[in-house]
Design a protein around this nucleic acid. Structure first.
Lengths: 110, 110
DNA sequence: TTTATATATCGCAATATTACGATATGCTTT
DNA sequence: AAAGCATATCGTAATATTGCGATATATAAA
């Protein structure tokens, strides 16, 4: 992406941006949607489920794992993936800083 | 980014990915952090606050506005920006599909 | 009306992301 | 040991993002 000035921002800001970036792709959302539905599955299941090549799915799984949004456990010669609830909850907690359910007011000047 | 196969995914998946993508940059998180703190401010305030050029801040504001995460109101010769709480709440509601606070179990196979 | 202030847009260079075929790695079964 | 299955990694082409200086646009003040 060009020069991202991560050094100029706080650790919390960079960490939140990294999680959001991992969520910022429809294929990865589709992977998470499927994981939420079936609780856990292997890479091959997702290759069947989604219109993407095996290499592409594997790459997306790697990015979700780097962001710690999912966990992967070796299961024979396959890898079983599932959602990492702790990181999702942490992410949602940070989002509450920006806006919480009670706060519906339009605070713009006009 | 190369070929993003948005057409292969649902509207909801693409919409969520677009919002997350807008959140996926530390400068934009810093902008939202500042907006959450001061409620509303103009572009020039952010230029003072953040270590980025005016053109860069303006571009980030545009992307946050495209994702509807913020609103902008013309105020004299300036533009007053504030957080759009409805979109944040919608985003958080979608995240609950993946994980909710009660759901802390590790559901991986091993 | 000229000048200042505030923001947006253009054009560019540097870098990141996405997707895939080919291939490597590593377990299982035969 | 050999063959098969499952996943990861490499290399590459196409495209997107980031950041900025320069410049355009529009309102406000002098």
């Amino acid at each position: 992406m060009g020069i991202t000035k991560a050094a100029y921002f706080t650790d919390a800001q960079n960490e939140l941006a990294d999680i959001a970036k991992a969520l910022g792709n429809p294929a990865r959302i589709a992977i998470l949607d499927h994981l939420a539905k079936v609780n856990s599955c292997i890479c091959g299941d997702l290759v069947t489920e989604l219109p993407l090549a095996q290499a592409t799915i594997s790459q997306h799984l790697k990015e979700l794992k780097n962001a710690k949004l999912i966990k992967g456990n070796i299961d024979g010669n396959a890898v079983c993936y599932c959602i990492n609830h702790e990181v999702f909850n942490k992410f949602k907690a940070y989002l509450n800083i920006f806006s919480n359910a009670n706060d519906n007011a339009n605070t713009c000047c006009p």
